[in-house]
């Protein structure tokens, strides 16, 4: 195989190398098991994670980087409908939680 051929092969492989990080961007990670909530019913787990995120934001400011993982944790286990309802309550000022 000549040098020119070898270069061609490398060029052909390039798109594959580019596509790999794109697929890897999806990280296989979710809310870990929490010993506080060993029950089958995880409703309280979801509610607590949601509150923990807003507590973090109240303490560190809106959009603080350290709160991002906490945001992922509650989103992973709370149904979207519940989160929407709670967000609405927070906007209206009728939210029962502290934060």
């Amino acid at each position: 195989m000549s040098d020119a051929d070898a270069r061609e092969v490398v060029i052909e492989e390039e798109p594959v190398v580019e596509a790999a990080p794109e697929a890897a961007a999806v990280e296989l990670k979710t809310t870990p098991f929490d010993a506080r909530f060993p029950q089958t019913n995880q409703a309280k787990h979801c509610y607590t994670r949601y509150n923990e995120f807003h507590k973090c934001q109240a303490e560190n400011g809106e959009g603080a980087e350290e709160c991002e993982p906490l945001g992922k944790f509650y989103r992973a286990i709370c149904p979207q409908e519940w989160v929407e309802k709670w967000n609405e309550q927070r906007e209206e000022g009728t939210w029962a939680g502290r934060y």
């Binding site: 999806v26 990280e27 296989l28 990670k29 979710t30 991002e68 945001g71 992922k72 989103r75 992973a76 709370c78 149904p79 979207q80 989160v83 929407e84 967000n87």
Partner: peptide, 10 residues
């Protein structure tokens, strides 16, 4: 719903 990969509520 798959929400492990989202950075916002929607």
């Amino acid at each position: 719903e798959y929400s492990d990969y989202s950075l916002s509520d929607d």
